[in-house]
Simulated scan of single mutants.
Amino acid sequence: MNATITLAGADWLLPLVGSLLLASMSLILLRLWRGPSQADRAVAIDALTLLGVAALVLFSLWQSQRVLLDVAVLLALLSFIGSAAYALLFSKTHDQEPPQ
């Protein structure tokens, strides 16, 4: 059985959400470029991957492709693993006591 689900207001809602995602991506790219510390840049990369997941879900809704949802979940998992690894690395470099 092949069921089709339609999104109410998709003709105006999906372009609006897409334009908001692009605006958010441009602001985050600015933070990535100008970020004063490495932690700011890491958070910006994490936010970009989150917006990438949202863009994949939006594109999946627009094209009615369920496979793209699997790709979005995989990207979210990889982003989480990368963020956790960076947080572990960042905490180890700052937890060391200075020599006396």
Results as ranks from 00 to 15, higher is better:
Asn2Thr: 14
Ala3Gly: 03
Thr4Asp: 09
Leu7Thr: 14
Leu7Tyr: 06
Gly9Ser: 08
Trp12Asp: 10
Leu13Arg: 07
Leu13Lys: 07
Leu13Ala: 08
Leu14Cys: 05
Pro15Gly: 13
Pro15Ala: 08
Val17Lys: 05
Gly18Trp: 05
Gly18Ser: 14
Leu21Phe: 15
Ala23Lys: 01
Ile28Lys: 08
Leu30Pro: 05
Leu30Glu: 06
Arg31Thr: 03
Leu32Phe: 13
Trp33Ala: 08
Gly35Val: 09
Gly35Thr: 08
Pro36Met: 14
Ser37Lys: 12
Ser37Val: 12
Gln38Trp: 01
Gln38Glu: 04
Asp40Glu: 13
Ala44Ser: 15
Ala44Lys: 06
Ile45Arg: 10
Asp46Phe: 07
Ala47Cys: 03
Leu48Thr: 07
Leu48Asn: 00
Thr49Arg: 09
Thr49Met: 12
Leu50Lys: 09
Val53Ser: 15
Ala54Glu: 10
Ala54Gly: 13
Ala54Arg: 09
Ala55Arg: 00
Val57Ala: 12
Val57Leu: 11
Ser60Thr: 04
Trp62Glu: 07
Gln63Met: 06
Ser64Trp: 02
Ser64Gln: 04
Ser64Tyr: 01
Gln65Ser: 03
Leu68Trp: 01
Leu68Pro: 00
Val71Thr: 02
Val71Ala: 03
Ala72Lys: 01
Val73Trp: 04
Val73Pro: 05
Leu75Tyr: 04
Ala76Pro: 12
Ala76Trp: 11
Leu78Tyr: 10
Ser79Ala: 15
Ser79Asp: 15
Phe80Glu: 00
Gly82Leu: 06
Ser83Tyr: 04
Ala84Val: 03
Leu88Trp: 04
Phe90Lys: 02
Thr93Val: 12
Glu97Ile: 10
Pro98Asn: 14
Gln100Lys: 12
